[in-house]
């Protein structure tokens, strides 16, 4: 924290070495969150550049309530989210998603595809299916899944980063996970059966 304060003071003075240090310290993690949200190296690079430009522009607005990294991380998430929405609006409107109901799940022959080691199961075909599924996940669901499940933020941290309620994070997370599970279930040939008990 002390190092961060010193680094930030030097950045505020426009010290080039300090800015380079800041870029090297923060860019790997910020690049990854952008890449996970946008799923394109070129788009993630653009978002990363915009994140640092925005941060330098708004440096005076940093009030120290969160760590400087957290502040920049939130900028990176917002920049990426805006880029994703812009990209998706060119292709199709942000639609809601369909997730299977309880009745639908109960009526199926569930396949237990959890026993094999992940790396053995993760074939090129399955990777393609997973990419397609997450590409189809609307931005508001995708970002929650990325922050909570891929970036490892807590529910609370995800809520603060996105400025939405904890309850909202939980709802979106559940729908995102069930939507993605559904793609894998199809790959593993989960089929409809007849059971309807509740």
């Amino acid at each position: 924290m002390k190092d961060e304060t010193k680094l930030l003071a030097a950045v505020r003075r426009g010290d080039e070495r300090a800015v380079r240090k800041l870029v090297d310290a923060y860019s790997p993690r910020l690049y990854n969150v952008a890449l996970r949200i946008l799923r394109s190296p070129q788009d993630a690079e653009d978002a990363l550049q915009e994140t640092f430009i925005t941060a330098l522009d708004k440096l005076d607005q940093f009030d120290g309530r969160a760590s400087f990294f957290t502040w920049m991380y939130r900028i990176a998430v917002n920049v990426s989210l805006m880029a994703l929405r812009k990209k998706r609006s060119r292709r199709k409107k942000e639609e809601s998603i369909e997730v299977p109901s309880f009745e639908s799940i109960r009526s199926r022959e569930l396949i237990d595809w959890t026993a094999d080691p992940v790396r053995k199961v993760l074939t090129a075909e399955m990777r393609e299916i997973m990419d397609a599924a997450i590409e189809n996940l609307p931005a508001r669901y995708r970002v929650v899944f990325v922050l909570r499940d891929l970036e490892g933020l807590s529910i609370e941290e995800t809520s603060k980063t996105l400025g939405i309620s904890v309850a909202n994070v939980k709802i979106r997370l559940m729908r995102a996970r069930l939507f993605l599970r559904e793609a894998l279930a199809k790959y593993f040939h989960e089929t409809n059966g007849t059971e309807t008990e509740s």
């Binding site: 790997p28 959890t114 992940v118 993760l122 997973m130 499940d149 891929l150 993605l180 599970r181 894998l184």
Partner: peptide
């Protein structure tokens, strides 16, 4: 288990990449 494993699959597939 399969909901949990879905998360694990994505964590492995989308592991951090180098800038």
């Amino acid at each position: 288990d399969t909901v949990g494993k879905t998360i694990v699959f994505y964590q492995v597939k989308d592991a951090p990449k180098r800038l």
